[in-house]
Design a protein around this nucleic acid. Structure first.
Lengths: 228, 228
DNA sequence: AAATTGGCTATTGTCGACAATCTTGGGTGC
DNA sequence: GCACCCAAGATTGTCGACAATAGCCAATTT
């Protein structure tokens, strides 16, 4: 009996899995983050040599990261000259918002048909947005706004749609950071988003899509006006 | 007089400009072409070492190309193991066609509002498709079909939409090459596409979008059934 | 017989160095 | 003063070599 007890080690929690991430992937992430948060502002020039020194990585590794972000639309390469963070024209803004409206229309349609469990998450994101609109900073409201849209896109359970939406959203964030776009009135935000939520929750796919599309086109039009 | 005549060399046509294309870009193009045409079939394994030898390029150059095509959705990377040409599941096909329907809906709406000059090109592409349906091979019909869709997308004058559409189309082509999808009856092809053309030519933006969306969803449903 | 371990090979990941190209500033000629 | 040219420096493009990792197979252990 005693031997049996002594032989059994006490239960302990499993160690967390160590997720392996290549230096390339980490460089991509770090760079993307700096671009999206505006630390690397629109129009900023970047060189592989500079980043290589800064990040303690070989230029080849940095180069891979830069090429990936170029593919995501966040950077522009001038061969043999350098890299630049994107600067968006009015045409670019129009393109981003029309494309986003198309994609988000689809996402909203799919979300309206999603299991209730997924739709509940959209409700939670809306509640979070509503809370933020009461007394939070503009930055927090903007973040909650993005989260609401992402909740819809996630509920669509469509990986390519999510990926595409993310690429569009990234570019829009770069633009917003570089523009003097006015932050919408919190009351407006809620009145714009509530109908979309309601259509999704009630399973009205066509209405959800129509409202989402319209919302994006209207917002895009407003944003486009803020280019000097 | 004679001296003047002798001094003037005869007029000759200007030499064409030499467009500088990096080895990386050429590798990307060559690889993409092999994937889309099926020479590198769905599921095929590729290694950097093999391609480097084949193409007479450094592995780093090839690697850049492979990473770009991964970003385009044509290749998958297994770290430290190898690259694979995509193989699409029914879910993938669904995703591609729903996304394509959303994008092409937008393209058709914009094309319906485009200058007549642009719309005329869509008419020309349709005529070409109609000619092909009379007596051409299945491959030529498929090509003319793609050209018709591309003419609509081009008429939208929306660079991001065109780029996105191209990425989707590429993946669909890889899938079609790997599937036993039946080639639609030529008469069906024309009856499906003519209403879209007519809506665009008559400037009916909403109808063009509706028809384009529906056409893509119906075709996507059919294609998805052909997965064994 | 099934599970584990270890070694080898093949592959990608990353490195630093050489090659190709672009930009800029200074000098020259008109 | 303006236009053109050229060289030098800065940058990306490409190379081959070393480092890290995954997969496979044979040997060993249970």
């Amino acid at each position: 009996m005693e031997l049996d007890t002594m032989d059994r080690a006490p239960e302990r929690p499993a160690l967390p899995k160590i997720v392996k991430v290549s230096a390339e992937a980490r460089a991509i992430e770090a760079l993307r983050s700096q671009i999206i948060t505006g630390m690397l502002p629109a129009g900023a020039r970047i060189t592989e040599v500079q980043l290589s020194g800064e990040m303690g990585l070989s230029r080849a590794t940095v180069r891979t990261a830069l090429h990936e972000l170029q593919k995501e639309g966040l950077l522009r390469l001038k061969p043999y000259t350098g890299w630049t963070v994107i600067q968006l024209t009015r045409q670019d803004v129009w393109e981003l918002y029309t494309l986003r409206s198309a994609v988000e229309r689809l996402a909203s349609q799919l979300a309206a048909g999603a299991p209730m469990e997924q739709r509940t998450r959209i409700q939670a994101a809306f509640d979070n947005l509503a809370d933020a609109c009461v007394d939070a900073s503009a930055a927090r409201i903007a973040e909650a706004d993005f989260c609401f849209h992402h909740a819809i896109v996630d509920a669509a359970s469509h990986s390519r749609l999510s990926a595409q939406y993310e690429l569009i959203a990234q570019q829009i964030r770069v633009y917003i950071r570089s523009s003097d776009a006015l932050i919408p009135d919190p009351a407006d935000i809620l009145s714009q988003h509530a109908p979309i939520l309601n259509a999704i929750l009630s399973g009205d796919s066509a209405e959800a899509g129509r409202l989402a599309e319209e919302h994006n086109l209207v917002e895009g039009e407003k944003l486009g006006q803020s280019i000097g």
